[in-house]
Design a protein around this nucleic acid. Sequence first.
DNA 1: ACAAAAACTGAATTATGATTCACTTGTTAA
DNA 2: TTAACAAGTGAATCATAATTCAGTTTTTGT
Lengths: 210, 210
Amino acid sequence: MAYRETEKMRKRKAEARQRIVSCAYQCVAESGFRSARVTSIAAMAGVATGTIYRHFESKEDLFAEIFRLATQREVDKVAEALSTPGDATKRLEAALRQFAERALRGPVMAWSLIAEPVDPKVEEERLAYRQAYAELFERAIKEGMDEGCIPVQDARQSSTCLVGAIAESLVGPLSPAQTNSEAEPRNDNYEPLVNSILCFCMQGLTGTRR
Amino acid sequence: MAYRETEKMRKRKAEARQRIVSCAYQCVAESGFRSARVTSIAAMAGVATGTIYRHFESKEDLFAEIFRLATQREVDKVAEALSTPGDATKRLEAALRQFAERALRGPVMAWSLIAEPVDPKVEEERLAYRQAYAELFERAIKEGMDEGCIPVQDARQSSTCLVGAIAESLVGPLSPAQTNSEAEPRNDNYEPLVNSILCFCMQGLTGTRR
DNA sequence: ACAAAAACTGAATTATGATTCACTTGTTAA
DNA sequence: TTAACAAGTGAATCATAATTCAGTTTTTGT
């Protein structure tokens, strides 16, 4: 008898997995899911192609995990903005702004998360992702209704609409055609775009234009 | 010298093309772009696979045309609802309702048009499709601002938000997972869902909840 | 040092469908 | 009838990457 799984090995394996994940993440962040190749992820991570398959069932599974990770980051940021002190209206506005601004700042990944055509398992994650946002907003809207700063309404429905309104507003600006043609001049100022999106959203929510 | 293109031939060719198009349409309406096979479309249309390629450059081109066609139908219906007599608010509400109800009534095609992952050329058509809606709504919003029944706002931005809010609200109900699990009970009543979507949208537009 | 058990490797295989093309059939005008 | 040409056919080919797996290397406990 010999080999028995050892702490050292467990750690090494975990590191390899981690390396694979972050290289895959990087690939996707650079040019989306569609063009990310298992082969190049492996090369980038310094492992053989086959190794990927001892860490993930399939490419789809790997990508689903990447999607989940990327998503979690975004959702956390929005949650953070929502847990700021202040009334619900203010917090919602900050959260929506956060959502939009982060997307515009990392347009390739944002596009992948919001609108890139992806395989079914990844698409499932996308559904979950959108629901995660919707739940976050829903809670805040309910708080707002309790506080009295947001009129009574179907909180879930409104939050779904918010997600849709923002996502749709970003699809144009984020779509690769747009993003590429922008050549070099990165980070223009997003303020006007973001503001006009928020204007509609806040009015939809509160009935008050600002 | 002999064979020269004749009226009869021209017509026959056109008919074959038409047959291909409508069979492809049917396939997509039944189960989406992803599962539509060139081979089965050909079989269904009663032509050889190769024949498809004398009418269309590639599968993507065929699908782009199908998308365009399906899209046109929908956009026309919405345009029709918008050209009804009445004030802009009423007309917009009717149009948005039309959009949502038609989607719920033909969920497979609607999902394909709104959210199914598709090839790049088809995705391009989708962008155009969403813009077509946005333009329609934009015009109506501007009319409403002139009439005074809609407060001054960035009409284009608002119309984009409307498209997004509705599309997002439909993605859940339309997604194949949902659609399939509904088993048999077709056409439930969509009223409550549609109403709550419209509630947010109209308030976003007018600042007035109803 | 060694045998047992993993883990790693990457070239070869496989899967999936779209696309092609050598050949057959149909159409036209003389 | 026939020559000239276009349209139609569908089995064979091709393209693209994901996935596999027989062989190699590494790790471990004795």
